[in-house]
Amino acid sequence: MKTTQTIFEDGSHKWTAIVRDPARPDYLIDTNEYLIQHAGQGLLLDPGGSEIFPAVFSALSSEFDPSKLVGIFASHQDPDIISSLALWLEFNPGMKCYVSWLWGSFIPHFGGTAETFVALPDEGETIPLAGLPLQAVPAHYLHSSGNLHLYDRQAKILFSGDVGAALLPADKQNLFVEDFAAHIRHAEAFHRRWMGSNEAKRRWCERVSQMDIDMMCPQHGAIYRGADVQRFINWFDELNVGITRA
């Protein structure tokens, strides 16, 4: 089963990371899920693939009533992001799925009805969670052509989807980045190959540089906090992406 770790808490406002499943088969990529709670309601960020649903559901349920989930935010359309959608909807069929408009007619192949989906425009949009404004931030082509991140201004946390992701070896499974230089080696090849556009990357770096961010939470790997957030942005800005060795 996955474990949960509270990474931010202020009254009823809380961020929980759902991470690291020791029983996960090696052929499935490891993913991080995040739960934002506010005033008794929950929003689940990139809930993961259907194969890991049992582990994510069990961990989340130990922390939060799943019927109080009012929405799911999907940074993009990949199966490791959102293929569990139909399973989550069993607990609250009225739940909303926030996703880029580009994938509005693709993700329903994983489940849901026309009423399930809230199509987010390219420029992003504010998603309210029991009065807490959460900002969907454009990250198109990083890596998906319709890609959004989610910024919580009050918690100063940016959920960054695949940006910042690292494929960590078994002996380096810390939740937070502890040694940036050592950590980023596990992120480099991933970013070079998966991030498709230097232009899009430059725009994203400019955009997030202007945000007040204490923690940057990727969907794979470890969380960047404090000065490592800006370190990552600077590193990413310098990186030449959208290339293969071949």
Binding site: M1, P54, S61, L87
Partner: peptide, 12 residues
């Protein structure tokens, strides 16, 4: 999907 729910029920 039932198989996935069964696995979930085994955990909870």
């Amino acid at each position: 999907q039932d198989e996935l729910f069964r696995r979930t029920a085994a955990l909870r």
